[in-house]
């Protein structure tokens, strides 16, 4: 491989990873923007989405009889499941604590994360063929390779651009455009921004802040649901612990871009995706160090630029 081919390959892999991280990071950053809570359970909601996706594939009889039907069905069922789960978590755990000290809610979020992780482990132990017949609940499950390997640049090309990368982009990019349009142009989107900027004033406008917060959790959960289907198809492996790594990547991305800032979350996610690709595809033995790099980025950002890349605020006059 020439240098350019290596760079191109890292870009393709990095951007595909980054787009998946971005969908999760958007959920983190939207929730933070509106209730100033880091929802540590967010990555685990995405993990449970992966298990639902695998269950659906299992119920369809596994394998690749009708891959597009299976993908369509997963995209139809998993996002509403994750949205409902995220909404329930807010309604029954975070909302009763809305006026409690921030730390109380944060610790509760970690608790919800533990509950989800254990649910994932239990789910993986169900006696289903796709879970290995319930043999080892905690082991990673292989997700059927529904899209197969198909290099769109030709079989002789050194650089690989497969239908999986195209699938990632085709599903995630329009969603991000839709979300940007919703938040910046619609009445409900403006209400969301208003609640984020001043909840009391938003109530005085006649906005029901509880419903707007609930809507934010629903949208964040749905995006995590899409991310879970895309990630499962892309990496073809899921495990009950994957919420931790995906959550870490997405959280770091959100902080890197400027927590609370939607374009920032996407930008941060692309950076993290590229950093992982470089570590795993170019640095010798870098794969072992890629978590260290992500944590390192998180620490550096928090120390030197806590507002993130795009997080500089408009100066507010008092």
């Amino acid at each position: 491989m020439s240098t350019w081919e290596i760079i191109l390959q890292l870009l393709i892999t990095g951007l595909a990873n980054g787009l998946i991280i971005a969908l999760i990071a958007l959920g983190y950053t939207m929730v933070y923007g509106i209730v100033e809570l880091i929802n540590f359970a967010h990555g685990d909601v995405m993990m449970l989405g992966c298990f639902l996706a695998l269950t659906i594939v299992g119920l369809l009889g596994g394998e690749v009889a009708a891959p597009w039907l299976a993908i369509g069905l997963m995209l139809l069922l998993v996002p509403p499941f994750c949205a409902a789960l995220n909404w329930m978590i807010d309604r029954h755990v975070y909302r009763p604590l809305r006026n409690a000290p921030k730390l109380t809610v944060l610790v509760s979020a970690i608790g919800v994360s533990f509950v989800c992780v254990n649910l994932g482990m239990f789910w993986g132990g169900l006696p289903m063929e796709v879970f290995g017949g319930g043999a080892q609940a905690a082991s990673a499950k292989s997700f059927p390779d529904l899209l197969g390997y198909h290099n769109l640049l030709g079989n002789d090309a050194v650089v690989q651009l497969t239908s999986k990368e195209v699938m990632v982009a085709v599903i995630t990019v329009p969603l991000m455009i839709l979300l940007t349009w919703f938040v910046s142009r619609t009445r409900l989107g403006t209400a969301m921004r208003a609640v984020a900027q001043n909840p009391t004033a938003a109530q005085l406008m006649g906005i029901d802040t509880n419903r707007v917060v609930g809507l934010t959790f629903i949208i964040g959960g749905a995006l995590a649901g899409v991310a879970s289907v895309v990630a499962a198809l892309y990496t073809t492996s899921i495990s009950f612990q994957m919420g931790y790594r995906n959550g870490l990547d997405a959280f770091t991305a959100a902080v890197l871009g400027g927590i609370g800032n939607l374009p920032g979350a996407v930008l941060g996610a692309l950076c993290i995706g590229l950093a992982r690709a470089v570590m795993e595809g170019w640095v010798p033995n870098g794969g072992q160090w890629s978590n260290t790099v992500v944590f390192g980025v998180l620490i550096l950002v928090l120390v030197f630029r806590p507002t993130g890349i795009l997080g500089s605020r408009v100066r507010e006059k008092v």
Binding site: T190, R193, Q197, M205, G206, I207
Partner: peptide
């Protein structure tokens, strides 16, 4: 203290006033 939405435009602030 007025509680204007600082990062929304003047027009968006006014439109929110008509949310009901």
């Amino acid at each position: 203290g007025r509680k204007i939405f600082p990062r929304l435009s003047v027009l968006e602030n006014l439109r929110l006033g008509a949310f009901t």
